[in-house]
Design a protein around this nucleic acid. Sequence first.
DNA 1: CTCATTTCCGACTAATTTCGTCGGAATTGA
DNA 2: TCAATTCCGACGAAATTAGTCGGAAATGAG
Lengths: 147, 147
Amino acid sequence: MRVSTRGEYGVRAMFDLALNYGSGPIPLRTVAARQMVSETYLEQLMGALRKAGLVVSKRGAQGGYELADPPERITIGQIIRVLEGPITPLDCLDTDSGTGPYCGQPEQCVLRGLWKQLQDSMERVLDNTTLEDLRQNAIRLGVAQGQ
Amino acid sequence: MRVSTRGEYGVRAMFDLALNYGSGPIPLRTVAARQMVSETYLEQLMGALRKAGLVVSKRGAQGGYELADPPERITIGQIIRVLEGPITPLDCLDTDSGTGPYCGQPEQCVLRGLWKQLQDSMERVLDNTTLEDLRQNAIRLGVAQGQ
DNA sequence: CTCATTTCCGACTAATTTCGTCGGAATTGA
DNA sequence: TCAATTCCGACGAAATTAGTCGGAAATGAG
């Protein structure tokens, strides 16, 4: 029931970009240093986020990454799904991957209801929190300046 | 963000025991066959659940496992915690294990609030669902008979 | 033009976790 | 006495996680 470092670092990097939204591309080196994560590892993650259309990049000198959309239009759920796959406690709930091995009769699967509830509650949090929400919290706590 | 087979199979086994609560000890062989999971693997899981006090066992012929308490007094959260450890998206939220590596200033950690919200929403579901709730659903769906 | 900066890409590796299996000892009721 | 059953610890294969590494390509500044 854990978020791996992919999700964790990815959200932190996106949060960092949100705090700096509007000031042009930010090099990964800077983000990695501020968030204290490996730059080469972040590179991997940002590649995925770029292909998913959540960030845009600019190569070369004065290049870097920035959010593809304003912070209020990017949710944590989007980020997590790109980096960790579908938000689901059990594969048999993931509609994309079809029914699971023993879930031949989903309507009879009492436990499916339980896991579905769990999934819904997770998605409710992650899909209703935007980077802007986090930015506002940062401002309120006074940790947004200087970045 | 997945429940591993430990949690999944464990919940299924406990659900099976709940459906049969009151009829004396049930041998693992029976539970494993009904739930279509490996018997030797289940053995491992039941050992943990027994040590945690969620089931009681009886060795030898006519032995087996039964719930240590009535189904309405055992929650899914209890089962998951025994088999998967603390319910927390990030280790830094787990009060037992102290603060995480970069969370030296938890009050400044904006993201901590997000992960805490996620944790709360997961625990709300898992700690408020009992085996009896599942049993009632099974009865309502007509899948409880014969077990 | 050149050069430092920076993204981009794919392959590789080490560590950890997951998902079990296996052999045998101990207990117990028939 | 014997079959059924839990109990226990060690073992192992496969998958996942968490990165590293080397180098190619692009680009702005001087």
